[in-house]
Design a protein around this nucleic acid. Sequence first.
DNA 1: GACTGGCACTCTGAGGCAGGGAGTGCCAAA
DNA 2: TTTGGCACTCCCTGCCTCAGAGTGCCAGTC
Lengths: 338, 338
Amino acid sequence: MDDRKLEVLRAIVEDYVATQEPVGSKVVAQRHGLGVSAATVRNDMAYLEESGYIHQPHTSAGRIPTDKGYRLFVDRLGKIKPLSTAERRAVHRFLAEALDLDDVVTRTVRLLSQLTHQVAVVQYPSLNRSTVRHLELVSLGPGRLMLVMITDTGRVEQRQFELSTDLSEDDILDLRKLINEQLQGKPLTDAPGIIADLSDLARPELGTAVAELARVLLETVVVRAEDRIAVAGAANLTRHAAYFSGSLRSILEALEEEVVLMQLLGRADTGPLLTVRIGDENEMDDFRETAVVTAGYGPGAVVGHMGVLGPTRMDYPGTIAAVRAVARYVSEILEQNR
Amino acid sequence: MDDRKLEVLRAIVEDYVATQEPVGSKVVAQRHGLGVSAATVRNDMAYLEESGYIHQPHTSAGRIPTDKGYRLFVDRLGKIKPLSTAERRAVHRFLAEALDLDDVVTRTVRLLSQLTHQVAVVQYPSLNRSTVRHLELVSLGPGRLMLVMITDTGRVEQRQFELSTDLSEDDILDLRKLINEQLQGKPLTDAPGIIADLSDLARPELGTAVAELARVLLETVVVRAEDRIAVAGAANLTRHAAYFSGSLRSILEALEEEVVLMQLLGRADTGPLLTVRIGDENEMDDFRETAVVTAGYGPGAVVGHMGVLGPTRMDYPGTIAAVRAVARYVSEILEQNR
DNA sequence: GACTGGCACTCTGAGGCAGGGAGTGCCAAA
DNA sequence: TTTGGCACTCCCTGCCTCAGAGTGCCAGTC
């Protein structure tokens, strides 16, 4: 394909994203300094349409990029515009103030949505990719205990439960020592196996207590490990209410479903690299009209993903720059806190 | 005011809520068994309009209730329809499965939004009305500690921090004992004063550590006591997109602001009773077109509020019944867990 | 005095129609 | 290969009309 044809496609994408209206040949020829006439542009447009990069809502309208068109734009045409220094500084300042992991996540998600004027989604560091830093058993009264688990990413899970037998302070300390010895430093994915063997290692008279504790541990580690996700900026969707026609509702509904969001943030196997999924590339029906820009983050290895969701007609270069910058900086923070 | 006029108002409210369209005299006369002609209804309508209970979008349209009309309806006309036994059973089953406080709140907010098909808002038990049940200090490594606070309502706050000096295990146990002795059973509102006096009570060589711990405690108790709030069902707002005209966006934005939500759930002084705020009765501009139904909940005393938000043309009897039932049941659960 | 049927009036919303405008495809010429 | 010109298509807007819904008011009835 011709260089100029690519330029025409870029012009169409940029203009359409800016104006939200179909782009005609005249505008492309005049405003984008191609140095050719509108008629020439029309020929190129005919070719681009033939090849499936753009399409016409109706005969006498301008052109709109297709998903395939955006894809080409993202892959080959968009020049990433780095954040302004002011923005960069604001990001740093805002995130540096975070007190702990919860705070980092909350701030990150707000920041992303404000920076991009879209919906932002941030996954808490996944338990499946964390290791146990510390386990704590706290006695809350006769027969009532609290289990606290802290991971190397700073995530804290806690759970209260009842024991059928009443344990002495010393017994509790014993148990605490036991589970820490067995689990500390271990990846959470190995935990279920270790937990299953716990009863063999404890003093026999603690048998039932250990069994009950094991069940709670397992629930905490596996059942509740469903990954938590924070969302912000849902209101930004209304700016595109016309575009989303009827699907606005189902998108909002989907944004309240952890499972859907997890799927959206991407298959777990993607690395720290930035991913853009446009329109039909999203497998879920509700997101056929949206684009999702995601990036992994984490200290060294990826422990979670974050991303931004918007209409396919979004400012890709700007969004990509924002997501990348924020993901990098959050990774740095986690590195420092390790 | 005439009994029949009140019946006419009730008919208009019920019909308008059901059909979302202005209600004419003919429909009122025929469908609501008043036993009078449309002309008579028209006279009553003229009176109701004169008095400000209903109004006409334009000359040749039917009538719509005003905020004042809804208010009268809620105060004197609406017959609360209790939940069906099936619904009641579903509420109990769903909430009984909750594992801990977080789970109770999450489930409650989902339940409310599903039951009412509106936006639901639930405040976590307010720290300001809780007492300290237990404080725990956990050593996470040299100089690094975690503070965990558990309140009588089951709420758990946790915070990691660094100490400039490195403490021995025994020192930590001492500190833990100290803060528990001083704070256990005390209402959190008294905590700041007690914390200020902590340094006088500790061994002198722990001086700086205590000071640092006191600062963290204070932050946890006061600064972070901003009350947490859970929201669900925002998607339901889109069903009324036409009604909310332009304000949908600002409502969605407001729903992400803790401060606004707190204000919405009501001045802290309201008791366990149910409150309905309609249209202009909400002091915030963004909510001039919405109605809010809230109730306090808690074991004995009120520790928090929950509520439902929707367009002023909502099914008040149904919503009121749902909020009341859920609030009562959540209170029971908290009572049991105390 | 309260209610009712009748009637003229008002306003909305849908449907049909014409005209301007934007944009295209194609063709012949440079 | 590019370009100017031209006929064509389709949308959008404004305008008009008309049916329908609902009202207010009046005069008559119980």
